[in-house]
Design a protein around this nucleic acid. Structure first.
Lengths: 200, 200, 200, 200
DNA sequence: CATGAATGAGCTTTCATTCAT
DNA sequence: CATGAATGAAAGCTCATTCAT
């Protein structure tokens, strides 16, 4: 009897996981709802008991993934001693997180931007939430004079661009390497870019 | 009599322009061929006299745009005195070019990456061509000790990420600002990121 | 519960029957899939749950009909005392079978030959199967000296031509007569044609 | 100046010849008007100066070919001494005529019957004309007691079936043989089939 | 007369979504 | 809750036909 909520969660999760697998193979648009159903081991119609439609499936992946990202992220960032170290940790967090699940990363890198046209608010919110958190780190660093001055959202956007580009390259690459291997590179690139100009 | 070649070019151009308008409104996938036809002021079937299918329409936009980009670009970069200045010019070139035509930029920012999954070689080639040219600038700067050492393609990828992110933000933004206004910001960000570490 | 297998068979049959009706009215090429759907009382898409495409619909009609033909045929032929009688029975079988369902006959007479160009192997196989069985009867009769000597497949082809022509004439005719009424005529025509030359 | 009617005829002929080539390659339905135009070496639109539409192209082929057939046929048949010989000559005429031009034969064997559904009267007329002439031979033979009694149109239909079947087999065959080689076979088959029963 | 670029109706097929069981 | 057969709207593409040149 207390099985129902549990089973519900299970099935919901299985569907989401199936969706990630299916979407990552062919991209969101090429994927049929029945592909998701097969990957999840449920009937087509069952998906509609848990999600309003196919779009909501993608939106949910974005939102819950970002929830997980920040849940783990906050722990990781909390132990940083200053904004500079926090930024370094953010870089490694971002790349490590995506690097752990190539299929998930594929969905994020290939379909997130693209979905802005049809998921509207959802994609926007996911991106904004990320940027605002990064901007906040930058602002604290700027106050301490450790980061270059300037619009923190714009700077956050460029930091995001660096990491996003590395992740996309990794996802689309046919070579076999770990995304984590790019962490030092990214850290030094971002580190330098945020450095305040020498007093000179 | 000189109507045929002229008219042909015209119609082809009108179709491409119509495609850019239509794709930028809804994204490539949401756009029907008949939308493109309407925007171009031609019949549906006419499109197939000039392009094999809907995909080729997008691929052509990518390739011809990049041709135009580098055609203008090489002139602009040629007058640079050294790799550092050349990189600055690249930054301004990139943002200025996209900033001139928001609809075109929208197609590039939203559909280019996404299309890697279905346009395959075309998207890849367009991106690679860009990155290789940037990497070449970086290499020359590295030889002169003006840029940080490291894999030039990886560095080029991160530079691209910065500019790409600014362009995407602009395209998706509801605020009204010119992408060119971001040039100084981007130049200083990229400039710092590529700076060789001080001798310390 | 026993609805699924039963319903499935039903629906498949209804679609095939609808196809026969539709094809016989306008011929295969002039018939739209939606015509078949309407005649079968199902939605367009339902057809594709049971058949890969429009061609397969026609191919299935050919193959299953010939299966039924020979299933009934073998019984009928089995009771013949000698090859001569067997040939007479084949003639009546052929004309009686087609004469029972004018719509089905129409599809066979009008579209079977024509489809050789696009259904390829299927049409060929259906025809070959028929001819080989007839040739076999002829060979047995030749051994007994009851039939004229000569290539049995060529003779079978001509026998087929006689029956086929009668069937086509019937299908295309506006007059109202039963194809069975032609049986004695055909039997005597074919009978004489296969008669070995008198010792003279 | 007297060139115009000449040129007209030429072009009309070239189009018809192009149509035969094109239709025989792929069948009438699979052939595009532009295929005919290319084969004839004219522009698409030109075809519509000489023929009302694609159907009329096929109808004209049927009718003019049958004109040529009987034109030559009457000469050939005229020299027969009696209806029996005339029938033998008809058989050889039929197979020889089709055997001379495999492409033309292909159009006749594959598309003539099929066209009854969309060419209506034309196909019917072509067939009827043939059958009536054959029936007339049979009737004369019956009067002389040289042919089996019975409805002459029905007998003509079966004779046609024999020849038609041989022609179709030849057209569809992948083996390489001349249709003329079947003349003796057909003559003896038809000859026997029409033989009046021995007085016995 | 001849051209061939342009048209747009019409076709097959797909697939997200529903709902009877 | 779960199923999956059934639906039917929607979309890309073809090609017979037209007509301005």
């Amino acid at each position: 009897m207390p099985r129902t909520p549990r089973a519900q969660t299970d099935k919901r999760q299985r569907i989401l996981q199936g969706a990630i697998e299916a979407f990552s193979d062919q991209g969101f648009h090429r994927t049929r709802v029945s592909d998701v159903a097969r990957a999840a081991g449920v009937a087509d119609g069952t998906i509609y008991l848990y999600f309003r439609n196919k779009d909501e499936l993608l939106a949910t992946i974005f939102e819950t993934t970002l929830d997980r990202f920040w849940q783990r992220g906050e722990e990781h960032l909390a132990s940083a001693e200053d904004p500079v170290e926090e930024m370094q940790r953010l870089v490694s967090l971002h790349l490590r997180f995506l690097g752990e699940d190539r299929r998930l990363a594929s969905v994020f890198q290939v379909d997130l931007r693209h979905s802005v046209t049809f998921l509207g608010e959802v994609s926007r919110r996911v991106l904004r939430r990320y940027l605002e958190r990064v901007a906040e780190i930058i602002e604290r660093g700027q106050v301490l004079g450790r980061f270059v001055p300037g619009d923190s959202m714009q700077l956050a956007g460029m930091v995001f661009g660096v990491l996003d580009s590395l992740a996309t390259t990794w996802v689309l690459s046919r070579r076999n390497y770990r995304l984590e291997s790019q962490i030092p590179l990214a850290q030094s690139f971002v580190g330098r870019a945020l450095l305040p100009e020498p007093a000179a």
